[in-house]
Nucleic acid binder design. Structure first.
Length: 430
DNA sequence: CGAATTTGACCGGCGC
DNA sequence: GCGCCGGTCAAATTCG
């Protein structure tokens, strides 16, 4: 009875496109482990049997062939199940990662909004500013019943009027964070709040025109151009056209003082999956926010003031792997500027003279386990996702590693490794 | 001819 | 209230 069921399943699985069998060939060693000993005795070579069976030949005695086919069918069913589980895990990892970035941005905004008592260390901080929050924060109390005036505001932002609102916001963020750990789905309304808040946090990148950062792997649609005050070079406005109604926007402007320098400002989080070529920049911007968040969190925990400038080590390849990161406490939205235009010698001067807070990008230099000690609080799934990016970059640098990894991957998944094509994507971005 | 870009008009926030 | 400014819209234009 059991055999009949297995045979049936096998027949169904067997109807898959022929490409699936190509991956099955790479699983000889795994299959042999589960192969009944009787099969080994009845055939000249078990590997030959398996190979022939996978190719649907009929050269073996009927009974032996039937058993092996049943067994192979079971293995394929098992592989299918594992493949599905892998897909589910990938979705979960992506979800957790997105939520984590969103929450970190949220925390950043809340912490910065409570800065007035410390803002003497910020460049524009003064006594007058102490009475109002440095950064606007989404008013959390009126989410369910927005007033008419709130609706008329495009972003729906309002300054926090008292500490009670800040505490409510923090509690809200804390509850959301707990819900992520429990795998719960956050409601649509909360997502919209996150989206709006994340859009307000900006990462600005100063880079020379020959710098690889100019090609970020995303598709952008230009929707405007404006000449800003103080800079005769026009500023171009782009929005991401890769996803439907993706909130991400970027501004590109040539530097007035040095026309070889471009200033690219990113705002918001993508609501779609990014191509491999776009991940370095996405990691760069998110890690800049995360790094500043870690910096500010530590300082707040120990009662220190927040430094607004620090050395930032990016995930990008040397020699452009370091930048001076500066926080601009804009009244409309906080902006972190990463300056990649300074030569390496300036970093040393910067370190010696100003003693900035030094935060390494946690995945830098492929020293994965050690580097992650820098951020012990980083959640595991995010680490795993980051590892994917590290491996991608490693593959791009070492073609021989690509072949090795493909062989290894084919023993774990039915997916065609060639479809991933990380190397070509990264080459394009370079 | 459809998609992408350009560009002037418009809107909302902010300071005076 | 007014003007300035940054950001966005949308019609016109250009491009492939």
């Amino acid at each position: 009875m059991e055999e009949k069921t297995s045979t049936k399943i096998f027949m169904e699985v067997d109807e898959r496109p022929s490409s699936s069998y190509e991956h099955g060939k790479n699983r000889d060693s795994e299959s042999k482990t589960y192969e009944p000993s009787s099969l080994h005795n009845n055939t000249p070579g078990s590997s030959l049997l398996l190979s022939l069976s996978l190719n649907n030949t009929t050269q073996l005695p009927h009974q032996t062939q039937g058993k092996s086919q049943i067994h192979i069918g079971r293995l394929r069913v098992k592989l299918e199940e594992e493949k599905k589980e892998n897909e589910n895990l990938k979705v979960m990892i992506n979800l957790v990662n997105e939520r984590c970035i969103v929450l970190q941005n949220r925390l950043l905004l809340h912490q910065l909004s409570s800065l007035p008592q410390n803002n003497h260390n910020l460049p524009n901080g003064n006594i007058q500013d102490e009475e109002k929050p440095v950064f606007p924060t989404r008013q959390l109390l009126n989410i369910d019943e927005p007033s008419a005036s709130d609706c008329s505001k495009r972003e729906g932002f309002a300054s926090l009027e008292n500490n009670e609102n800040i505490n409510i916001g923090r509690n809200f963020a804390y509850e959301c964070f707990n819900s992520i750990h429990e795998g719960e789905i956050i409601s649509k309304k909360e997502d919209q709040v996150y989206e709006v808040e994340c859009r307000r946090a900006r990462v600005s990148i100063r880079a020379r025109s020959d710098f690889s950062l100019m090609v970020d792997g995303c598709q952008w649609r230009k929707y405007g151009q404006k000449t800003a005050k103080g800079n005769p070079c026009p500023r171009a406005y782009y929005r991401c056209s890769m996803g439907t109604s993706c909130p991400v926007r970027k501004q590109v402007q040539r530097c007035f003082k040095d026309e070889s320098v471009f200033i690219t400002t990113y705002e918001g989080n993508h609501n779609h999956q990014l191509p491999p070529a776009a991940k370095p920049i996405a990691n760069l911007t998110s890690s800049a926010l995360n790094t500043f968040l870690s910096n500010s969190t530590t300082n707040l925990q120990y009662g220190n003031s927040i430094s607004n400038t620090f050395l930032f080590s990016s995930p990008l390849s040397p020699p452009n792997s370091n930048a001076i990161a500066t926080l601009s406490p804009s009244p409309t939205c906080p902006t972190i500027t990463l300056d990649f235009t300074l030569p390496p010698s300036n970093y040393l001067q910067f370190k010696n003279h100003k003693q900035p807070s030094l935060f390494s990008f946690p995945f830098q230099g492929y020293s994965y386990p050690q580097s992650f000690e820098v951020f012990p609080n980083m959640i595991n799934n995010e680490r795993k996702l980051a590892l994917v990016d590290v491996v991608s970059e490693a593959i791009a640098k070492d073609p021989s590693l690509k072949a090795t990894l493909f062989a290894a991957m084919s023993s774990f998944t039915n997916e065609d490794p060639l479809n991933i094509n990380i190397h070509s994507e990264l080459s394009k971005s370079a």
